[in-house]
Computed example of a mutant assay.
Amino acid sequence: MGNNLGIGLFCFVALLATNAAADCPLDQEVFTSCQIEGRGTEVFICFDNRVTTYSYGPIGGAPDLFLSETIERVDFEPWSGVGTAISESVTFYNGAYAYDVGGGFDRPFSVEEMQQPIRRFGWIEVSENGAVVANLECTPETVSDGFGDGIHDAKLAAGQTWDPDSLTWISDLVQPTVPSLLMESHLYETVEDCLPATEFNLNDVSMGDPLDTLGKLGSPETVTDPFGSGELIDRMFLVGASIDIFQDRVYGMSATSPDWRTPSGLKVGLTRGEVIRILGRVPSGYDATSDGFYTQVCSDTPDAVDAWSILIEFGQNKRVETISFVSPSY
């Protein structure tokens, strides 16, 4: 009976694969597609070994919205392997908006269930700045695929590994720091995580550096403290980064471009999983799906002038959006 059920399930999945829609860009194949319930519209998610595309618009007509993303960067979430249904999804990002599209089917657990009609389902979840603004359901009988090896295998071939804890992909080029970059501080009564002072550096500009060593980067401008103190500060505006100066020394830095990175390789654009791999583990007080990580520099002196902190913030695409270093004087 077990062997018959296994063979039957294989045929069941193969049958789903043969029902895939074909309305994709040239040389691409469908990941999932469906018509949206009560709207007269349809969605197609297609892919090849380089690019994944999103197309949404009137049935049989030109798309109202067409998006594309490389295989390396596309936010694809494979089936977790548990539950009564098999489904996978892809999320595309367009400015403040995110479009999570998925499809799947209820999996059978007996020969009798495999003889019943296939129950398919699919969806589009639209978010704006992380808040859900619309949930669209697919007409079940129009759902095609939504499960298979295609995008998953393309990402593996591109040198990536799925991390089910952070729900992100990790490039094989991102290697863990040995020993762990995150260390433990025993300065206070409670043990806290910290990073070595050498990590508080962006492109060879370090916290505490004197102003006269930054001349090659430009001249600072006097601006109002963006953190609301009302004080005037000196800020150097650079492409993809800013550097704040206090008493002729660097006391704050922020990066918004992958062109600026720390000695360990932390930079904008990394996935949550890649950041965790570089750090060595999830910082205490957070989990692998947190929206950001905050920790301090390792120090042996309470209330030290150089008691810097780092804030790594992730965008709705689960990638680093900003890396900021701040001093106690902020």
Rank of each mutant, 00 (worst) to 15 (best):
I7N: 03
G8S: 06
Q28S: 11
E29K: 07
V30E: 05
T32G: 03
I36P: 02
E37R: 14
R39W: 02
F44E: 00
F44R: 09
I45L: 05
F47L: 06
V51I: 15
T52R: 00
Y54V: 09
G57K: 11
A62T: 15
A62K: 14
L67K: 00
L67S: 04
E72P: 00
V74L: 03
P78Y: 10
P78E: 12
S87N: 14
E88V: 05
S89C: 13
S89W: 10
T91C: 14
T91I: 14
Y93R: 05
N94T: 00
Y97R: 08
R107N: 11
Q115V: 04
V132D: 02
L136P: 09
E137Q: 14
C138I: 09
T139Q: 05
S144M: 11
G146D: 02
A154K: 03
W162T: 01
D165N: 09
D165G: 06
L167D: 10
S171A: 15
D172A: 11
D172G: 06
P176I: 08
T177G: 02
L182I: 01
M183W: 07
E184H: 08
E192D: 13
D193N: 03
E199V: 12
F200H: 15
V205E: 04
M207N: 14
G208L: 12
G208E: 14
P210L: 13
T213C: 08
K216H: 15
D234P: 01
R235D: 01
V239I: 15
A241Y: 04
S242Y: 07
D248C: 03
D248F: 07
V250F: 05
G252L: 09
G252V: 14
M253E: 13
A255N: 03
A255V: 01
T256I: 08
S257G: 00
R261G: 09
R261Q: 14
T262A: 12
T271K: 05
R272K: 04
E274N: 03
R277Q: 11
I278S: 05
L279Q: 08
V282D: 06
T295L: 07
Q296V: 07
C298T: 10
A304V: 06
D306S: 08
D306E: 11
A307N: 09
L311S: 08
I312N: 01
Q316S: 03
Q316A: 02
K318T: 10
K318A: 12
V320T: 01
E321I: 01
I323K: 04
S327R: 08
P328H: 07
